[in-house]
Write a protein that binds this DNA or RNA. Sequence first.
DNA 1: AATGAATGAGAATTCATTCAT
DNA 2: GATGAATGAATTCTCATTCAT
Lengths: 195, 195, 195, 195
Amino acid sequence: MPKVSEEHRRARRQEILGAAARCFARAGFHRTTIQDIAVESGLSPGLVYRYFADKDAVITAIAAQWHEDQAGLLRADGAVGDLVPGYLDLLRSLAAPAERERVRLGVQIWAEALRAPEVEAVARAGVDAPREVVARLVRVAQDRGELPAGLPPDGLARVFIAIYQGLALQTAWDAGLDNDAYVRAVEGLVSLLTS
Amino acid sequence: MPKVSEEHRRARRQEILGAAARCFARAGFHRTTIQDIAVESGLSPGLVYRYFADKDAVITAIAAQWHEDQAGLLRADGAVGDLVPGYLDLLRSLAAPAERERVRLGVQIWAEALRAPEVEAVARAGVDAPREVVARLVRVAQDRGELPAGLPPDGLARVFIAIYQGLALQTAWDAGLDNDAYVRAVEGLVSLLTS
Amino acid sequence: MPKVSEEHRRARRQEILGAAARCFARAGFHRTTIQDIAVESGLSPGLVYRYFADKDAVITAIAAQWHEDQAGLLRADGAVGDLVPGYLDLLRSLAAPAERERVRLGVQIWAEALRAPEVEAVARAGVDAPREVVARLVRVAQDRGELPAGLPPDGLARVFIAIYQGLALQTAWDAGLDNDAYVRAVEGLVSLLTS
Amino acid sequence: MPKVSEEHRRARRQEILGAAARCFARAGFHRTTIQDIAVESGLSPGLVYRYFADKDAVITAIAAQWHEDQAGLLRADGAVGDLVPGYLDLLRSLAAPAERERVRLGVQIWAEALRAPEVEAVARAGVDAPREVVARLVRVAQDRGELPAGLPPDGLARVFIAIYQGLALQTAWDAGLDNDAYVRAVEGLVSLLTS
DNA sequence: AATGAATGAGAATTCATTCAT
DNA sequence: GATGAATGAATTCTCATTCAT
């Protein structure tokens, strides 16, 4: 397994996934054909099958990569105090035109997770991990008296995730929404919590 | 079987939509065939086409009905004080096993709205209306000093919708999540806001 | 079998055939549905089946009626000398706007005769009868020395039928063709023959 | 089986058209299914759609090819004197068993031209061109005194086309008709004209 | 007799997948 | 490895026909 070849394989795989992501974001998983992906990537339909067992495997890989990238965005190892600015930035980032594709793809993945167990597994893992991180941080903050003790950490973590998911969804539908007003509302809520 | 009453037509349409909703909730719009709907409803494939122009029309009708039902759930004409318990009940209702189908259907509709302009129109209308209602109530409450004046009403309305949407999504994935903890977290947030 | 009822049946049958003729002339046999005929006639699809065994029977009846009407137009019992003006009038009549439907229908029947034995039988009978009449008249005229003796009567009869059929076809395609020039050319040919 | 030559594509297209022509001649355009064409050609239904957008496109291509072949048969660049033998040969050729398919196909195309604008365009072009050629030759012959001056050239051209069309139609219905008698009758007419 | 709702077999078309080159 | 031609099962949709009312 020569290094160059492995390198090449990875690059090819990424080309295909990139093309697939663009197609899926545009037309959804089920209105996108392998042919569409081939055209978008400049490769051939047959080649897709040397990198993925079938179309579902492409979808699953897209979902996995999406959550992987998401995990990258969420990486935060500090205290709640540090987490908050990062979270608000995450909300803000959803408004970026460059994120449009990602956001649309995310919504499609959420729906697909309901039917494809592999996608569900990937999506669940992608949501559970940050939820547990947040819940842990909430507990720490509550111990330190920085957050009200009465709130269930897990529930609160889910609420923050929901606030992100809901914004993503609303942005997917209406890219022109007032992201700033949204973030300021969230900021207001958070400052009430931490004051 | 000639000259059937308008009543009968409405009932037939509902039979088909009911069967379609069950199929769609289970397998998604695109893995459900017209044949599946026919079998589920105990009717024939041809009959579906006497009530709907094509499969997309069935999907759009399902989306329209979903948002109509949703509007029924949201009906609230009082002040914010009255709205809150209704909102919390709405969040609680998502945990009901009977709502499982509705919740799953909702997520599919969100994704479908990204590709089908007719579904988008329906979904947008279904979200815009309650958002404006909430935003108006927030403004009223701010005028009365019942809510902090600094928060953007529209942003806050979107946040509350997001908290609903996110819970719906997370419930669709994991029906066993701790709905009560979620609602208590939201309750805590709201009481911070209104105190 | 009361007379009124029989009368009524005949009238109903004609209503259906009239509607079918209009539909067929417009859209062809195979793009016309029983539903189309029902709408055009103001009756119901089911009723068509009380007058005709199936759609093919409607087509055959249309073909039969077409050739019957045609026979009416051709009725001529005189000598060739009398036949010629009638023939030329027949050619002229093809240009009449009122004949448009008949002409279009005729072409469709010709094609249908190639696939439906019942239509073929009807069409063949409708063409053979006048052909034999003409051939007989040609023979008589040849005996009298009014027509050149060398020409095969049957061949000549077929040629005259062809001159009619070809004009019908060309008129079906292009209702604006110069019918008068055509008839004058035929007239010239005929006068060469009979002089 | 990648990157196939243009030659191969042309051949494949012809295979499909050949099979389609056989099916259409036998059963008509509308009783022939794509499946029938696939079986007749030994190919798959899907492949038909790599060469033709839909069934109507196959029909149009068949019509176009029919008229193209027809144009090949009509090619004549001489004077009327040269044209006549060619024309008579054309009439004779209709009796050849090998022409049976072509003749039947022609009649179907005539009918189809009444409903499919694309077929109409093709048919009209296929008839207009030879008509103008003949009309021009008639004019030349009249100038030279080889044909009676009084006859309208365009009308006469249409009559000759009608004599061809009518023979084709009658041959389609009855392959056993006396082609020789027909041709002798036409020959007689023509010699009267040119004498 | 008449209606038109309902059926379901059949046809066109698509597209994931294979495999010869 | 790559290609893209070829396949054929699956799906949508149509429409002739039936039959309960």
